[in-house]
Structures are given as structure tokens and as C-alpha cells.
Design a binder for these strands. Structure first.
Lengths: 232, 232
DNA sequence: ATGCGCTTGTGAACGTGAGCACAAAGTCGT
DNA sequence: ACGACTTTGTGCTCACGTTCACAAGCGCAT
């Protein structure tokens, strides 16, 4: 896996943090802040300031020494780097509870994404209105993608059909996929997939939770041992 | 950030992949596979086989050279390592579209998690039944957490109240939090937070999408240049 | 029994990312 | 005009993660 994005060469880890910075910056802008120091912004974003400065330095030298960063200017620069100065049309496939929630989520529109098409296999759902959009039947998928020039697809279907939907999206020209179905999707190299999986996140939490319990129990044992041996 | 989980010392990156392996293994088990080689399992999980073997080797030597891994046995070992042999009670706070979707998601129960309590601030929702559970008012939060011995909390509220909810969960004794709200939560060191943020994932996709466009355009330019110069 | 073929487990090399600590570069008061 | 102070940008070091490549180990056929 090449971790450096080719081109200007922004590390992948940095790219993943830019949206967090962007959100913190937007909040600051709303609160009327004119400039912000790396220390403040880092705290707001939950990282340390050295990392933040290094991350921002990959975009260019947009700060002023002794002062900090101009909030509005930095918002613009980060947005531009992330490609959010243009609007990306998005299709959502699968409108169960989750797809429904995604369609109604306001956070997309405000950040350069426009949900342009909804598709579901269930005849009950087809032609219904969700978030101001009509639900299209599965057959219409390829046509919608081509006609609306959609490059980003969101899969919110049950796991068993996710790969099929994925294949159809890719062959229709979608080159980025956000997958909510709990399966590993196979795609050609030039297609980028990111997955969001709540059950995986919970399992990671469970691992650490268990570890806490285990070490706590171990602590108890050593304390008991110490008591058994008696005060030295 | 210490990347090695203390104790037996399984790398954090490995822990994050174990749930993926577990899912692939479960599928294989359902299909009646008795054993599986690292190569097969790696393909199913979307990683390379060397990484898979190293990951599994942190759990112990559970494979047989020349043969592969016993599927059922490995399922058990991975589950045990992740702490999924016991059931973890979970509370969901916030039952908008997303919380609703989470409450109804079947994937949790089958993997060691039991949604035990639903809480929402909206009087309209309180006392309604969702996924077979009654929705409790916000005031009941601390009592529910203590009484049911809940260690894992899921925050699916609007962003502005997420930090407050988080603080209340933590002070009631929750030590792991899965956060769907688009904010960076501040918590004490001993509390583990993981966040799921679809808008961040989309922005990362947009970055790569833009890069593809840029390099494609660059390709066009070089081709045009080459033509302008003429065949050599 | 013995050897052959297959697959695991791991040492070692390499690449990526994090964080310290400081020089460079700006602002502001005098 | 200048010096004190503040904050950025970055060279360097260390830790973490990935991958290669191969020896060790196991089963099966002969």
C-alpha cells in the first residue's frame, strides 16, 4: 500500500485528519474567530500541535509566525485541498433505516456533497419521497449514474447484495465507494473504497474493555498476594 | 499514543483487523469449511497473507503447517481475544434516524453485544417501543447505566449535545464510547472513544477523486504537448 | 521409515508516521 | 529602529507497521 498520495505527496494520515481540522475551523469561524494558533486548533481537533503544524505545512505556508493562521483563509485552503470547492454528486443505494438516515443527514450538503439519486430494490420504497428525492428502482441505477455524472456511490444495502451493487456502480463509472455493508468489497485498483462498520468499532472497544477488566483483576490478585505475604 | 496494547501486547493495527478476520471466518464456517489457509483467509479479508499470519501469530500458534487453520477453533480464539465470549450491554443515546437504524441493526446481537437501553431527550419518543425496547427519558440515563452495569455507550445525538451526554455517560461509569456525532469528544485518559463519521469518509474520498481528475487532466496536457511537438 | 510438498511462523529490512526541540520569521511596544 | 516576545515551519530521532523471504514443521505417499 503506497501511503503517500502521489502528486504533491500529502501523507495519507494527514489527509484523514484534514476533515477534522476543517470542522474545527468552521466552528471557530462561526464563533467569529479571526485567527487561531496551532495550539488552539490542535486542542479543538484533539491532536498535538506539532502534528497539526506538520500536517498544515504539507498544504503550503499559510500561517503567520508570531500570530497564527487566518481562519477563513485556512478554511478555504483546506477545502480546496480536499476538493470541496466543487460539489460532488452522490448516489445512495439501499434505503433501509440506515440509508434513510444518510439521506436525511444534513452534514453532507454543507460540505460539498449533494445527494442526487436514491435507489432501492424494494418495490414498496420505489417512488416514495425521501428527503425531497424520489426513490428509483434498481434497474435505473446505471442510467442515473451516467446521466448525473456521479462519481461517488454509497452502499447501504444488506450484506449479501453489496458486492453486486458495487460491481454495477463501478461498471457504470463510479470510482469512489463508501460502504456501510459488513463485507469486504472487491474492486479494480483504480476504484477507492472506504468502509464504515459500527460492529467492527464496537468489537475494538470490547477488546480494550476486556483488557481493562483483565488488568484490574490482575491488580486485585497482586494485592491479595501482597496481603497474604504480609507487610514486609 | 502507545500503539501497543499493554498486557500481552497485540499491536493496535492488528486489533483493528481481527474483527474483519472474524467475519470472514464466520462466513467460511457457515459455508462448511473445516480448515482454511492463510492465503484463502487473507483474500477473503482483503489483506495480504503475510500480514494475516503475523496478526494471527500474536494470538498464539493456532495453525498447522502444511494444512492451515481450523476454522471453528480460530473463530473461538479470535472471539476470545476480542472479548466476545461474554455479552456486553450497550446503551444508545439519541434515537433519531441514525439511532433508530442502530437499534434495529441485527449485526450487534450476533457478535456479543446486547442493546439494553435506549435514551432520548425528545418527549415524543419517550415511552415508544423501538426494536422491542422502551425509550427512556434523558433523566434516567445514569440510573440505567449503573443498574444494568453498562460499560459501552453509543452516542447518536445531534452534535451540540454530544459532549454533555458523553460527560454524563462517563461519570455514570461508562468506559468505552462509540460516537456518531460530528464532534471531537474530550474524555479522561482511561475512557476509550471511537468515532464513526460518514462525512469525514466522504471528504477523504473526495480528495482522492479530485487527485484522479487532476492527474487525468495532466495526462491530457502531456499528450497535447506531445502532439504539438509532433512525432519525433 | 523416509522424503517430498505444502503452509505456517518469524527474523530482518524497509517505509511511514509521531513528536521533540529549535531556528526562522513575523508582530508589537517603546 | 530595535529588541523582546510569540508562533510557525522543519530537521532529526525513534517507534510502529508492512512486507519479504525462508527455515521449521507437519501430513501424506511411497
Amino acid at each position: 500500500m503506497p501511503a503517500r498520495a502521489q502528486g504533491r505527496g500529502i501523507p495519507e494520515a494527514t489527509v484523514a485528519r484534514l476533515p477534522v481540522y476543517l470542522r474545527a475551523l468552521s466552528t471557530l469561524a462561526e464563533d467569529g474567530a479571526g485567527t487561531v494558533s496551532s495550539e488552539e486548533l490542535a486542542t479543538a481537533a484533539g491532536v498535538n500541535s506539532a502534528k497539526l503544524r506538520k500536517d498544515l505545512s504539507y498544504l503550503g505556508s499559510y500561517g503567520t509566525r508570531g500570530v497564527g493562521y487566518d481562519v477563513d483563509y485556512l478554511v478555504y485552503q483546506v477545502s480546496r485541498e480536499l476538493g470541496l470547492t466543487q460539489d460532488w454528486p452522490v448516489v445512495i443505494v439501499g434505503l433501509g433505516h440506515l440509508g434513510h438516515a444518510l439521506a436525511n443527514y444534513g452534514g453532507f450538503a454543507s460540505r460539498g456533497f449533494a445527494i442526487r439519486a436514491l435507489v432501492d430494490a424494494d418495490p414498496e420504497l420505489v417512488d416514495q419521497q425521501i428527503a425531497g428525492l424520489r426513490v428509483h428502482p434498481l434497474e435505473a441505477l446505471e442510467d442515473l449514474v451516467r446521466r448525473l455524472g456521479i462519481a461517488i456511490g454509497v452502499i447501504a444495502t444488506p450484506a449479501p447484495v453489496a458486492q453486486t451493487i458495487c460491481d454495477r456502480l463501478v461498471s457504470a463509472g463510479v470510482s469512489s465507494i463508501l460502504n456501510f455493508a459488513p463485507v469486504v468489497l472487491a474492486v479494480p485498483d483504480e476504484v477507492e473504497v472506504r468502509k464504515v462498520d459500527m460492529s467492527i468499532e464496537l468489537q475494538i472497544l470490547a477488546f480494550h474493555e476486556q483488557r481493562k477488566l483483565a488488568t484490574a483483576a490482575l491488580g486485585d490478585v497482586s494485592r491479595e498476594l501482597a496481603e497474604a505475604v504480609g507487610p514486609r
